[in-house]
Each structure stands twice: as C-alpha cells, then as structure tokens.
Write a protein that binds this DNA or RNA. Structure first.
Lengths: 221, 221
DNA sequence: CTATCAAACGAGCGATTGTTTGGCAAATTT
DNA sequence: AAATTTGCCAAACAATCGCTCGTTTGATAG
C-alpha cells in the first residue's frame, strides 16, 4: 500500500492502541513528517511537474491538510528546493563512491556514467533535472539550485579532464553532451525494458571510447 | 520593439479565412492572427512552461482578450498541441533537407545532428521537447504528441541504421543517447558562447565517429 | 439595403491556487 | 504540577485559473 494517509492525531482520547512508538527515541527518527512530505512532493513533482502539483495534492498524499505543510516548509518553492537538494546529494554521493577506486580514465568515466544512470533512474522522483530551466516562479532560489548542480558537474568535469581526448574534441563539449545523453535517459527509460540503468550508462561510454587497437594493449597505468 | 501588442482590431483588411468560404487572397498573407497567437504561445510556453502560462498571458502578448483566444483554439491544450506540431514540422523538414544529398553514413549523421541542433536552438520557442513527458493535463492529446515525435525519430533511426556500428553497440541505444545529447543542448546553449548550433551537433558526431585508420581511406558504397 | 459572417470584446462563472490565521490537544520541558 | 513547545486542524483569504456567453463591430455578398 503505497498511499497510506496515517492521521494519528487528535483522536486517541484514552485508548491504548498507540500507532506510534510510545517512546519515540529522540535519536531514532520519530516518524519524520518532514521527510515524508519531501518524498511525496518529490513523487508528485516528478509525475506532474512543479506547477501542476498543488500543495493540496502534496498534503493529501501525506495525510495532512494543506495549511499544515507550512509548519514544515515556508513555501511551495522552498519545498521544491529541498527536494532538488536531496536529489543532488544522492547524485553526488553515488558518483563519488563509484569512481573512488577506479584508476583507468575511461573506466572511471564508465563508472561515473553507470552511477549517474542508476541514481537518475532508480531515485528518479528526486531527480528534477528535466524540469528544464526549472519553474520560472522559483526566482529567488535560482542561484541556490544552480550551485547544487554545478557541484555535481564539477565531478564529471574532473573525470573528463583525466581522459586523453584527441585535440579535435573540446572537453567542455564532451562533458555537456555526455551529461546530456545521460540526463535524457529519464525521458525514455522504462524499467521493464531489460536494460539496467548501469548498463545504459556503460553503453554510452562504449560508444565514446576509442576502439582498442590490436597492437597496443594496456600501455601503462 | 520586441513586444508590440498591436491591437488593430476591427481592421483585418483580408481576415485570414482559416476555415471555409471565399478565396483567401493568397498574395498578401493578411496578418494571420492564428499564427500570431501560435508564436506568442510558443514563446511563453518555452519561457515559463505550459502550466505556468495562463491564457491571459498569451492573449495579452497577442494584443487581444483572453476570451478571444477561444475563437481560434478550442482549449489551451489544443493550443499546446498546435505549437508542438509546428515545432515537429520544422524539425522534420530541416532534418530531411539536410541529409538528402549526403551519401557517406557518418556524414549523414553529422548533417542530421547539425540540422537537429540548428532547428532546436534557433527555433527554440517551438521545440517543446524538454517539457519532460509534457504536461500531465494534456491527457487526451497525448497520443497525438507521441506520434509527432515518433515521426521524427524514425528519420534518425534510419540514418543510424546506415552506420556500420561494431556489434557491441546496440543501434537503438545509440540513437537514444544520440538524440538525448542533442535535445539536452537546449538546457545549456547560450547564443553568445561562440559555438554555432551546427558546430555543436557536428562535434557530437566527431566524438562518436571511429577514428580514420591511416591504412584505409576509401568510402565504400 | 439587407443578411451573413468572421473576429473580437467584456463581463463573469465556478473552481482552484498558495498562503495565513487562530486555536487546541498532545508531548515535552521546567 | 505548571508552563511551554510541537504538530496539526479548520476555516478562511485574495488572487488567479480556464473557460463560457451574449453582444458588437466591420467587412463582404446578394
């Protein structure tokens, strides 16, 4: 049951059946409403877009009323920024973990591509990349969003810089097209297609990687 | 004067007979209101997104009142579909023109890429590709939109099929990543960057094309 | 002159939008 | 036990949404 509006307030006058942990250990994430709102908002933003999703939709999916959202978030826009930040955090962490132990430049790129696709397609609700230049009404938070993206793209830039590209290829354009192809997967990927996200990412690198020349195999580290 | 709400109402000397009746003097292109609405709608959809653009915005930019839009278009959604169709038409025509006289398979791909980028970035208002899975509210028109896209992608499919790809590369994935990288350019391209759209497209093909082997230089078939 | 028609106006409909406010029970702190 | 904070409800708010509809204007055809 994906949608379970649990309204555990106001009602229990005296009865024993407690829905929550009787003693919510302060450490143990006492049924974090804020997180729950974030998840539902992400799902709806991804499914319908920012503008088409109303705060009542989000509240309803969470099991609370619209006005109650404003206890946790100052505005709908701030909620969007929070979802975006969570997504970028996943993306950055996944990518860094993936390339940490890989030495060969092209293998690093392949690892990064696989990680990018995996995060993008398996946590897709949080990956609001494809909201093109994001909702125009986002206004004041725009710079913050761009900063979050740049932080990730810097990682890819560094991996690309390690490649030994022919002089005819502009590394910047290489990175832009590389990330572009990966990001676009979100608009055509279907889980049932038999291809895993990681395979899709690695295949892209296979297209870009220069063919191994029979004469020279593994020249050096 | 970029935005000139020209309210020359009551004025249409030859009132653009969109539907029926008399012979529409084809000579003077009599200030087609429908076309004008289409252009303004495209600009606003591209700038702010479908949901964030109100019919009053569009009417205002055109120099008429909101209600008057409904003489030309049955609904806001139908207007969106019309803009999308116009964009796809541009894209299809541009691509077909570009590859018509090119024989070499990789050169054909380069020509298609250059054409795609040019159409995408220079008529960008009409290219509503990046509206992710388009507005969910589009509902009943969804199939029509998909059909319009598939018609274009079929052209690229045919060009890709002409390539002599290594057996490790799936042509379908090649096409998806290829189109993905091209479509994504819309989210980072800035006209002042010194790169032309055509160059950006050709550079992508340069990254994908296998390096010319010094020994064999003859273009077979 | 009269009838018809395209094209727009202008008012307003009901519904929905994001947000604010006041209050209240439960949980926590003092 | 008292005081305070937390988390939410319930109701409203002004603004805006897509859209409808009766009316009016100017042009053209018979």
């Amino acid at each position: 049951m994906p949608r379970a509006p649990q309204r555990l307030t106001r009602k229990p006058a005296t009865p024993a059946p407690r829905r929550t942990r009787p003693v919510p250990k302060p450490e143990a994430m006492p049924f974090d409403r804020r997180q729950q709102i974030l998840v539902e908002a992400a799902r709806l933003f991804a499914a319908k877009g920012f503008e088409a999703t109303s705060v009542r939709d989000i509240a309803n999916a969470t099991g609370i009323l619209a006005g109650s959202l404003y206890y946790h978030f100052a505005s709908k826009e701030e909620l969007f920024v929070a979802v975006h930040a969570a997504g970028m955090e996943i993306l950055i962490r996944t990518a860094q973990d993936a390339i940490r132990d890989v030495r060969d430049p092209w293998d690093r790129l392949a690892a990064a591509a696989a990680a990018h696709c995996t995060a993008l397609l398996e946590s897709s609700d949080f990956m609001l990349l494809v909201v093109p230049n994001f909702p125009k009404s986002i206004g004041q938070y725009r710079d913050e969003l761009i900063r979050q993206r740049d932080e990730y793209e810097a990682i890819i830039s560094q991996v690309v810089a390690g490649l030994d590209l022919p002089p005819t290829i502009d590394p910047r354009l290489f990175r832009l097209h590389f990330i572009g192809a990966l990001n676009w997967t979100q608009s055509w990927f279907r889980p049932a297609s038999g291809l895993t996200p990681a395979e899709i990412g690695r295949q892209l690198v296979a297209m870009l990687r220069p063919p191994t020349i029979p004469g020279s195999e593994s020249p050096s580290s």
